[in-house]
C-alpha cells in the first residue's frame, strides 16, 4: 500500500502581534482509503495541519517549513490554476460550521451543480443530476425538494449533510474533516459520523479527521495521531491508542474523558495548561505537566520512537523500555 499523503517535518509559524509556533515538526502519512484522526486540544495544531494541506493559511503572516506530498506532488508549491484543480477534485474539506462552506445566497442544488460544472465540465442537466444523486447519498430526505432549499432553510444536521454532499460532489481522494460533528446534538452527531463512515467506504477515499473528542475518533478512525503543542506525541491504530496508550498525555486525555469514571471520585486531571508556543519547544513540551517527567525530559525534545509499523511514541520512557 502506498501513502496518499506524506507530511514530513512540517513546521508552521505565525507572526503578527505575537509569534506562535503552531506546528513544530509534524510527520504523518495517510494511506489510500485510510481514516486518520488528529486528536488534540485547542492549540495543539490539528486544524493548522489540515489548513496547510489545503493552503488555507494566511500567506502573509505564515511561515511554513517541511514538505507535504500528495500522491507524489508537492502541495506547498501548488499555485493558481493547479491549486484550484487540487481543491475539490483531489482534496475537499468539511468544517464544524457549515456556513463556512455553504453560500447563503444560492440554493444547495445550485451550489453542488456549479461545483461539478466548474471542475468536471459537466453540462447543466448532468450537473443537476449529480447534485440530486449527492443529496441522496448523504441521506437527505425528499432530496428533489431539498435541491432548491437555501442553507438557512435547513436544520443543523441537514446543513451538515448538505456540506458533505458539496465536498464529495467531485469525488475527492482525500477528505479533510475539521470537527464536523462537534456543534451537533448527540443523536445527530452519531448520524453524521455513521454517514461519513459509510461514504468513506463507498467512495474509498482517505480521510483526515480532526477532533478533540476521543469518543468520536473511536467511532470513525482507523488510526489516530495524538497532537500536543504542535507536535505528534503518539500514533497508532485506534485500538492501540485506546487499549494501550503509551504517552503520558494520551493516558491523561483518556482519563479526562470520564468514560466510566465513578461519581464523586477525584479525577486524575492533567495539571496546568498547554504552552503558549511563543518559542519553539526545546524540551518535551508536555514535561511541565507530566507526572513522570525526569530531568532528561526538560533537557531535549524526545525523538519519535517507532514501535512498529504506524506506531510511534514521542517519549523517552519508551526508549528506555526498548533498551
Amino acid at each position: 500500500m502506498s501513502a496518499l499523503v506524506e507530511i514530513e517535518d512540517l513546521t508552521v509559524r505565525f507572526s503578527g502581534e505575537r509569534t506562535v509556533h503552531a506546528l513544530n515538526g509534524v510527520s504523518l502519512s495517510v494511506e489510500k482509503g485510510e481514516v486518520v484522526a488528529l486528536l488534540g486540544e485547542s492549540g495543539s495544531g490539528k486544524s493548522v495541519t489540515l489548513k496547510s494541506l489545503m493552503q488555507l493559511l494566511p500567506g502573509k503572516r505564515t511561515k511554513i517549513g517541511g514538505k507535504i506530498a500528495f500522491d507524489g506532488r508537492d502541495v506547498l508549491k501548488l499555485k493558481g490554476r493547479e491549486l484550484a484543480n487540487f481543491r475539490g477534485p483531489e482534496v475537499a474539506m468539511i468544517f464544524q460550521d457549515p456556513s463556512l462552506a455553504l453560500d447563503p445566497v444560492y440554493a444547495i442544488g445550485t451550489q453542488i451543480a456549479e461545483t461539478v460544472m466548474r471542475h468536471e465540465g459537466l453540462s447543466r442537466p448532468d450537473a443537476n443530476a449529480r447534485a440530486l444523486d449527492m443529496l441522496k447519498r448523504v441521506r437527505i430526505p425528499s432530496p428533489e425538494r431539498r435541491l432548491s432549499n437555501y442553507p438557512h432553510e435547513m436544520s443543523g444536521g441537514m446543513r451538515q449533510r448538505a456540506m458533505i454532499a458539496l465536498a464529495l460532489a467531485c469525488g475527492p481522494r482525500l477528505l479533510l474533516a475539521d470537527e464536523p460533528t462537534t456543534a451537533l446534538d448527540a443523536t445527530v452527531q452519531m448520524q453524521v459520523l455513521l454517514l461519513l463512515r459509510e461514504l468513506q467506504q463507498e467512495m474509498g477515499m482517505s480521510v483526515i479527521f480532526v477532533t478533540h473528542d476521543i469518543g468520536v475518533a473511536v467511532e470513525i478512525a482507523d488510526r489516530v495521531a495524538v497532537m500536543y503543542a504542535g507536535t505528534i506525541v503518539e500514533t497508532g491504530t485506534i485500538a492501540e491508542i485506546i487499549k494501550d496508550p503509551r504517552h503520558p498525555y494520551t493516558k491523561g486525555l483518556l482519563a479526562a474523558n470520564l468514560h466510566g469514571a465513578v461519581k464523586g471520585a477525584r479525577l486524575d486531571a492533567i495539571p496546568g495548561a498547554p504552552p503558549t508556543l511563543e518559542e519553539p519547544p526545546t524540551s518535551c513540551p508536555f514535561a511541565p505537566r507530566c507526572p513522570v517527567a525526569m530531568a532528561a525530559c526538560h533537557a531535549a525534545r524526545p525523538p519519535l520512537i517507532s514501535k512498529g509499523p504506524g506506531r510511534a511514541v514521542a517519549c523517552i520512557l519508551e526508549a528506555e523500555s526498548v533498551l
Binding site: 444536521g157 448527540a186 448520524q191 455513521l194 469518543g215 473511536v218 467511532e219 491504530t237 485506546i242
Partner: peptide, 18 residues
C-alpha cells in the same frame, strides 16, 4: 454516546432526523 470500543462501534444511528 460514542462506544469507546473500536471493536464495538455504533452500527445503527439511535434516531433519525434533528
Amino acid at each position: 454516546m460514542p462506544s469507546m470500543d473500536p471493536d464495538a462501534r455504533t452500527q445503527v444511528p439511535p434516531l433519525a432526523g434533528d
